[in-house]
Design a protein around this nucleic acid. Sequence first.
RNA 1: GCGGGUGUGGCGGAAUGGUAGACGCCGGGGACUUAAAAUCCCCUGAGCUUUGCUCGUGUGGGUUCGAGUCCCACCACCCGCACCA
Length: 838
Amino acid sequence: MSSDTRFDPASADARWQNAWEEAQTFRADSDSPKPKSYVLEMFPYPSGRIHIGHVRNYTMGDVLARYKKATGHEVLHPMGWDAFGMPAENAAMEKGVHPGGWTRDNIEHMKAQLKRLGFALDWSRELATCEPDYYGHEQALFIDLYEAGLVYRKESEVNWDPVDMTVLANEQVIDGKGWRSGAEVEKRKLNQWFLKITDFAEELLEGLGSLENWPDKVRLMQENWIGKSKGLEFSFDLSNGEKLPVYTTRPDTIFGASFVAVAADHPVAQAIDSEEARQFIALCKRGGTTAAELETAEKLGFDTGITAKHPFTGADLPVYIANFVLMDYGTGAIMAVPGHDQRDFEFATKYDLAIPRVVAPSVEEAGKRFDGEAEAGEGVIVNSDFLDGMSVEDAKREIIRRIEEQGRGQGKTVWRLRDWGVSRQRYWGTPIPFIHCDACGVVPAPKESLPITLPEDVDFQTPGNPLLRHATWKHVDCPKCGGKAERETDTLDTFVDSSWYFLRFASQPDDRPFDAEEVAKWLPVEQYIGGIEHAILHLLYARFWTRALAHMGRIEVKEPFGSLFTQGMVTHETYSRKKGGKTVYYAPDEISREADRALLTADGGEVEIGRVIKMSKSKKNVVDPDTIIDSYGADAVRWFMLSDSPPERDLPWSEAGIEGCSRFVHRLWRLFAAHDAGAQGEDKALDRKTHQTVAAVADDIEALGFNKAVARIYELTGAVEKAASSASRSAAIRTLVQLVAPMMPHLAEEAWAGISMDGLVADAPWPEVDPALLVEDEVTIAVQHKGKLRDTLTAPKGAAKEDLEAMALASEKVQRSIDGAEIRKIIVVPDRLVNIVT
RNA sequence: GCGGGUGUGGCGGAAUGGUAGACGCCGGGGACUUAAAAUCCCCUGAGCUUUGCUCGUGUGGGUUCGAGUCCCACCACCCGCACCA
């Protein structure tokens, strides 16, 4: 190939993108006999523009997908749009556009942006959750779940976001505020649809154990979220004749109970007929729920005057209303053991209640005083009648046995996980396919009436749900009795949409949500890549949905994502100035960056360089993918996304960095252009380096260690550049084209064509590795004396210990270091080092 | 508070218990050029009495012939959860 022209991404990128599209290079064939590989990145919300975080996410997946294809796999690498959600309605309210039009325009724009990056995607499987051919199937699945007993309705207190005028899931309430609007969340009672995720709590928890290729962090977060705890539920007999069930995880400490406490909204509390009680309850409800407030919140109580009889001692324990007891966990009432629970300790201290010790380090220390705080640790049971001397575990079993014997209660497992409320009082979501009939109650819509589509003629100038206000949409005949009835006007939480899209990608029949056989071919997803922000919600819901479908016999697979990878964010330094007490931020393109300072282009004055933080519009530290692709081409951008930072860590964006990447693209191009097909001669050392690099890069990509693969490619490039012309060098150049192909596919195709190789490099198999070339025949041996490096020497691989020892002792530098001292010991690690101990 | 993670040059980071700093960025010097850009070459952890030596992976201990890596204690930062009985 002879060309002294520069690589021109502006023309090459589009040309090869078209070539792949025409050849349908990345179309997944489910009938292929090859082993299947399903590579999936979390599909984007069509907010309007692709941001740099998407670019990093999809570049990683793309390298893996292309590598998998090269290594003989049939790859499914699809893309779609998580297209329902509130921003579309917000845009509708602000700009007077229709959410559908807004969303579809965004999709079109973002799709064009993704195409510019040359991702190896099977666009024939593209889907958008806002289209009836997706959400209609979701409605069918929802009805199926209903018929399987996994969907129910109940009136419940919900988190009401007064700004977005909608219900939020617990997970969407952060510090008492709506996750999107930031508004203070109110409590309201509404009839809501729920999915019975709690039926699967045990399974979802146990299933985590099988997910070895998930980050421990995510598994732990899910484990905590599911929150299994084992304990005892039993009832106290109250002085007013009623029974009060309480829940405890420490039944072993029952002899240490000195009072009983109920939540402010507990029926026992509500029944107290006194002004003070009502005031106290109101006070509890007013208490803030932010992290800071909770941390400093004082333990407060109100003595009800009622007493509870201790089931073993018969003592009368006072019953308090306490602000730290939660109604929605356990039974909303506790037996308080101040000696061994910190909250109870603080409460007892404040109200001067007894703090008995019932667990001690040893029997002898049964009288030990508390040192200002509760002791929640292990030990031996003391001051507890028949439990004395037992271990905590034995005592737990014994108390549960006795309570069960008395018929007063039983051992019980309590979960933190709540059922998943999916109703949203919103327009831009999947209509819930049910009909309310005065005569027949709640009736599922007939399957043949699906999809129940959203009406187009809606207005967004009034807050609240447009479906509820629409003149005709909700009025239908009851499918059962034919009488007048109304549609459900709530729509589904968008997390439902993303709970099964990976099944729809695998197969897209018109008449049903998915084809079980096709799903079996592709699932589980071999590698799922996305942000850590979905560690709990999306990933737990998708796991639940998959298990629910498996439970119903619809699919075989129980866990949808075999391996999960959570990539780090793209960050950037900030530029700002203080202006009259306010901080004004400047965008990177308004700045000219010098070695140790940054100047504002507009006035030439200096601005402050701030911390490297996550890109955000408010700090203006964003870079736009389109702009940088315009300047450097897709391959340089992709290369940057893979370089330097390990993929799970944050990647600091820098102008210098992307320029370095761009330089490397052109440097490679010059090397490729110098390829000499007719070169003769062997260069054994270069052959070794080439084969070692191929093997190492393969390992790195499989481990998603892209930064290491990049470093190795730099090394090989340097070695090839330095090598003299030979057949080995030409072979190394061809190999290099293939090694960079997953990362810089446009440059690689251009070079592949330039060196007259057949077909597309995207279709070429991964270079073969000759195992014989992976081992060196000479090794460098480190020689240490007193644990420090004194000299290095070159020896044939596999040299005998004695020979290495002799060579080491022959070294002048080593002799000088030993300086006549007596040699006590010589440690020889073959092919590695010799350590002389004196 | 509980749980988890991270700490290595000016920066991003490499390093199966075995030559710390691969590779990239920044910086310095040089070549080419009328000049610049581009490109190429060299240097680039700190210190010193510079054929070489000493120190150096958050801090302090320990195990080992040998520790960035293993163990113990601590410090700092980041993330998650949070009156969950």
